[in-house]
């Protein structure tokens, strides 16, 4: 790859990567927080709540992310006559989508624990919430880290569909560079390298955190 190509186009690509990172990070935070509640709600002893969240998860997993994105960024605002910032709307769309997957991970993490843990906690007199908070969730946390990292990596890659709604993320920037220079190969190769650098760094960091937690 000629150095002048990089010198001329890297700044634009890195700027795009910045947007990708911000988008993925904010959406992941929303996904984690919302998803934890989704996972807990699916296991709720109160049936209506469990059924409602099951439906929420099924709908989000059973429809294309692209369609969800278009619906939230363009569809809903128009129907309600609202002006929305596209970046923020995209953050919300990815966050909601991710919450369904995080919810399933949290639910599976909790269910993978021995039923006796909940029973032991309850028979000491803990309420359901206390047992969750002090006994179940701390154990589930260790088990959900690897699948959550997966979800984070997937989310970061999937944000590339925002190129379709004209947000200049990394993928969109690569498209711009490709068409401006007529050299798609180095443009997309560089984009791929930057994506990989981001996902790889993230999963390495997470592995470090996980090892820390396991020592205890």
């Amino acid at each position: 790859m000629p150095p002048d190509f990089l010198a001329q186009n890297l700044p634009l690509l890195l700027k795009g990567a910045g947007m990708t990172l911000r988008l993925a990070f904010l959406a992941f935070v929303i996904g984690l927080v919302l998803g934890t509640f989704v996972g807990l709600a699916r296991l709720s002893p109160w049936r209506p709540l469990a059924l409602l969240t099951t439906a929420y998860v099924e709908v989000l997993r059973g429809t294309p992310l692209m369609v969800q994105l278009l619906l939230i960024v363009f569809g809903i605002p128009q129907a309600l006559g609202l002006q929305v910032d596209e970046f923020r709307a995209a953050v919300v769309a990815f966050g909601i989508n991710s919450s369904a997957y995080v919810g399933e991970i949290v639910r599976a993490g909790i269910q993978s624990l021995d039923r006796g843990q909940m029973e032991a906690a309850r028979s000491l007199g803990m309420s359901y919430a206390q047992a969750m908070r002090w006994v179940i969730l701390p154990q589930a946390l260790r088990r959900v880290i690897p699948p959550l990292v997966n979800e984070g990596v997937t989310l970061l890659k999937e944000t590339s569909v925002v190129a379709m709604i004209a947000l200049t993320d990394l993928t969109r920037s690569a498209q711009l560079v490709a068409s401006r220079t007529y050299r798609p190969f180095p443009a997309y190769l560089t984009a791929a390298a930057i994506y990989f650098a981001m996902t790889f760094t993230f999963s390495r960091l997470a592995a470090l955190v996980e090892r820390r937690l396991r020592v205890e």
């Binding site: 021995d114 006796g116 029973e119 032991a120 006994v135 154990q139």
Partner: peptide, 11 residues
Amino acid sequence: MVFQRFHLFPH
């Protein structure tokens, strides 16, 4: 209550 398989909190 004491269980057959203890069910201590492992963390």
